[in-house]
Design a protein around this nucleic acid. Structure first.
Lengths: 154, 154
DNA sequence: CGTGAAATATGTATCGT
DNA sequence: ACGATACATATTTCACG
């Protein structure tokens, strides 16, 4: 499926995709066309989702990260699917995890200040009829944010 | 500081940085050299951290996301700094938020299975003398993962 | 900021292993 | 099937107005 060179390519690209294909080819020891063919194949076969620029939040004014644990009234799938959709459409919500146990959803919400967070709670959380309760953990500091995954395991 | 075109550039690049400079220039209505100069300036001035390829986790075998709430014994800063450093050096930990309240840290940990998670707990959490207790929320489904930030606010 | 030209990179075709 | 070389096309990047 994926050989050592493919993994090396993916590892490098998820560290830094501003590498030119020539540089990438050099790093993995292939000719540029051979390297390009692999990258194209990895993209076509759905290993690479997309390439994005990661910005530095601090440069855009103060911001808060909220970790929000949401408990729903019922675990009915279609009802919670509706909530998941609202959350996906909500710009403040950067991540949403569906978890098992008492809590049903964990959200990572990014806002510029408390009033923006209150507005979000009104618009998304309190507006959801199936929402039972939620707990907010306030973070003023993101210590680590790494988008790379372990590519040496499949 | 940042004008409308800068914000437009940043907005586009954090959606998709595989755009060529020619395409980007076209979208924002500038000549390629003018656009390139802005991108370089935005990078040099620290608005852009890096460009990365986001991979599709499902293509690399099963994986679990753990939301881990960690409570420390003492809030002594230098002690918790040591823990933050361990966490930063730990490959399984993709994100770490320092939060206020009972809980001190929230980690997003990505592992292939439960035994990998147990190994992580032993190596990082139980090994930390200042760790009082932690709670794990297990997620088998990441509903949303958006690395883009709101660029229209500073 | 735009134009045009030079330097690089990307992408294609073909051949060889 | 996969990679290398050579060549054509496109992009990046610099100098100048």
């Amino acid at each position: 499926m994926l050989d050592r060179i493919d993994r090396r390519i993916l590892g490098l690209l998820q560290q830094d995709c501003s590498l030119t294909n020539v540089q990438l080819a050099e790093q993995v020891g292939l000719s540029p066309p051979a390297c390009l063919k692999r990258v194209r194949r990895l993209t076509d076969q759905g290993y690479i989702d997309k390439r994005v620029a990661l910005l530095v939040p601090e440069r855009f004014g103060p911001s808060l990260h909220m970790v929000v644990e949401v408990e729903m009234v019922s675990d009915q799938r279609h009802v919670n699917e509706a909530f998941a959709n609202r959350v996906r459409a909500s710009a403040e919500v950067k991540q949403c995890y569906r978890v098992t146990g008492e809590v049903d959803f964990v959200l990572i919400v990014m806002v510029s200040d408390m009033s923006a967070y209150e507005a979000f709670c009104e618009r998304v959380l309190y507006a959801e009829p199936n929402m039972k309760k939620f707990r907010t953990l306030i973070s003023m500091r993101r210590e680590k944010f790494d988008t790379a995954i372990d590519v040496d395991r499949s």
